[in-house]
C-alpha cells in the first residue's frame, strides 16, 4: 500500500515532467538554458514579495519571473559586456536579494530550504490542481505555438523573413515559461526547477530523430526519474526534489556516454 503523500508526490512529479519537456526543448534549441536558470532563481524574490504583500506566491512568482525576463532583455541590449555575464550578475544578485528578503520578511523561522529545494512530499491536493490545471494551459499554448517556435529555433531570421512574428512568439513563450517555473517551484524549489526542463532533453537527445520524438522521450525520462528518485528518497530518507534531479542527471550522463561510444 503506497502512502497518499507518496502518491501525490508521484502525480505532481510526473505531471511536471510532462509539462517541462516541450519547454525544455525550446530552451535548449535556442541556447537559452542559462536564461531559464536565471529567471527561475530570481523567482525567490517573487516568494518574498508574495509573503510581504500577503498574496498567493504562485502569482507573485509569475510576475517577478516576467519582470526579470524583461530586465534581462533590456540589459542584453547594452554592448559593454556579453550576455552570459549579465545573466551571471542577475542570477546571483536576485538570488542574494531573494534569500535576504525572505529571511527578513518571514523571520528566522522561515523554511528557506523548502523554497530553495522544494518539498515534494508536502504537495497538497490543491497543488495538484494547480499542476494539472496550469499544466494543461501550458501544454495547450505550447501546442498552438509549436510550429512557429520550431521555425524560430531553426533559424530566427529565416522565420521572420517568411512571415513568422518571431518577437511575439518568443514573448509568448517566456510567459508560458514563467508559469511553468511557478509550478515547478512547488515541487523542486527555485534552485532545481530548470533541471526538470533541461536535463531530460539532454538525456533524450541521442535517441531522437525528430523534434517531437525528442520531447516525448524527454517526458518519459523525466517521469521515470521521478519514480526512481521518489523510491530512492523514501528508502534512503534523502530529500525528494534533489533525489529526482540526481536520477535525471545520472540518466543523462549514461545516455551521453552510450551515444559517444556508438
Amino acid at each position: 500500500m503506497i502512502e497518499p503523500f507518496l502518491l501525490r508526490a508521484l502525480a505532481a512529479g510526473i505531471g511536471l515532467a510532462i509539462i517541462a519537456a516541450p519547454l525544455g526543448a525550446i530552451l535548449v534549441w535556442n541556447r537559452m538554458a542559462y536564461f531559464g536558470e536565471t529567471v527561475a532563481q530570481a523567482s525567490l524574490v517573487g516568494v518574498a514579495l508574495g509573503l510581504l504583500l500577503n498574496i498567493d506566491v504562485t502569482i507573485s512568482v509569475v510576475i517577478t519571473t516576467l519582470a526579470v525576463a524583461a530586465l534581462l532583455i533590456v540589459l542584453g541590449r547594452q554592448k559593454l559586456v556579453p550576455l552570459d555575464a549579465i545573466l551571471g550578475l542577475t542570477h546571483h544578485g536576485t538570488l542574494a536579494l531573494g534569500v535576504i528578503a525572505t529571511a527578513l520578511i518571514a523571520g528566522p523561522s522561515v523554511d528557506l530550504m523548502g523554497y530553495l529545494f522544494g518539498d515534494v512530499f508536502a504537495v497538497t491536493t490543491s497543488d495538484l490542481w494547480l499542476i494539472y490545471g496550469g499544466g494543461a494551459v501550458v501544454l495547450a499554448v505550447m501546442a498552438w505555438l509549436w510550429q512557429p517556435l520550431l521555425r524560430v529555433a531553426v533559424h530566427e531570421e529565416l522565420a521572420s523573413a517568411e512571415g513568422v512574428p518571431s518577437r511575439r512568439v518568443r514573448a509568448a513563450f517566456i510567459v508560458v515559461l514563467a508559469l511553468t517555473i511557478a509550478i515547478a517551484m512547488k515541487i523542486v524549489g527555485v534552485l532545481l526547477a530548470i533541471a526538470f526542463l533541461i536535463v531530460p532533453i539532454v538525456a533524450a537527445r541521442p535517441f531522437a530523430a525528430t523534434p517531437e520524438g525528442l520531447v516525448v522521450t524527454a517526458a518519459a525520462v523525466g517521469a521515470s526519474s521521478v519514480a526512481l528518485g521518489l523510491t530512492l528518497s523514501s528508502n534512503a530518507d534523502a530529500p525528494g526534489g534533489p533525489s529526482i534531479v540526481l536520477c535525471m542527471a545520472l540518466i543523462a550522463g549514461l545516455s551521453l556516454a552510450i551515444s559517444s561510444r556508438r
Binding site: 517568411e162 513568422v164 530523430a209
Partner: peptide, 23 residues
C-alpha cells in the same frame, strides 16, 4: 531567402524533409 549563416543547434534533431516542409 537563403540566409548567410545557418548554424542549427545540434540538439535539434531534424531531417532535410522535415526542414523543407516546415511551414
Amino acid at each position: 531567402y537563403v540566409p548567410q549563416r545557418f548554424d542549427i543547434d545540434r540538439a535539434l534533431p531534424m531531417t532535410v524533409a522535415r526542414f523543407l516542409a516546415l511551414g
